[in-house]
């Protein structure tokens, strides 16, 4: 029962959102936030934070659980991942902030961040919060690049998948990724200083 209504919700929200209903978008966000957080928590609990099973599998699982496959179109999938990546970012960052606030508390382990090593990130809460701040800045400078980062880091998509989702050639995604990564890497050092 629960399952059916959930898939319906997601499916409809996606459609409504695509048709320009921004309220549906934020509802979708909240909806996904709960679902993914739950999934992620059980994942982390089962596999531990260093598990290879990361965001991608998680999102795929969520996708299959939440979106009615028989009616889904390609755009649904692309949009789902775009939203879900953003949701994952929120989850990861919220967790990191929580951890920072707790100070001495043990807390739950953080989710593994894909490709984090490319930024020399340690998956430490401080790093993640700094990353979030950088992404915020990146979003105001160039929203397209922000989407790229979110898909890579938080949805864990490969270069090929990312290219497909953004409708770009692989080569241009590679270049765009390199440049964006370089920018982040440099600015990360800086924003950590500010934090």
């Amino acid at each position: 029962m629960q399952q059916v209504s959930k898939t319906l919700d997601t499916f409809q929200l996606l459609r409504q959102w695509r048709e320009g209903d921004s309220a549906a978008g934020s509802e979708l966000f909240v909806h996904l936030y709960d679902e993914l957080k739950h999934l992620a928590a059980s994942r982390v609990a089962n596999e531990g934070p260093r598990s290879d099973l990361g965001a991608t599998e998680l999102l795929h699982e969520a996708y299959f659980r939440l979106v009615d496959q028989s009616h889904a179109e390609w755009q649904d999938r692309a949009q789902f991942f775009a939203v879900a990546a953003r949701v994952m970012r929120r989850i990861v960052i919220d967790k990191a902030r929580e951890r920072l606030a707790e100070k001495r508390g043990a807390g739950q382990p953080l989710l593994p961040l894909h490709y984090a090593e490319e930024l020399n990130l340690d998956n430490q809460p401080e790093d993640l919060v700094a990353l979030d701040r950088c992404l915020e800045a990146l979003g105001t400078l160039d929203p397209d690049r922000l989407r790229l980062v979110e898909l890579r880091f938080f949805a864990g998509l490969s270069l090929e998948e990312t290219a497909k989702h953004l409708g770009l050639s692989r080569a241009s995604v590679v270049r765009r990724w390199r440049v964006t990564r370089g920018w982040l890497r440099r600015n990360l050092g800086k924003s950590q200083v500010e934090s």
């Binding site: 020399n120 890497r185 440099r186 990360l188 050092g189």
Partner: peptide, 16 residues
Amino acid sequence: QSPSDSVVSVLSKVAN
């Protein structure tokens, strides 16, 4: 430091 450290990260390490 590692070869992949950026200018800014090296600087911030030195400064902080």
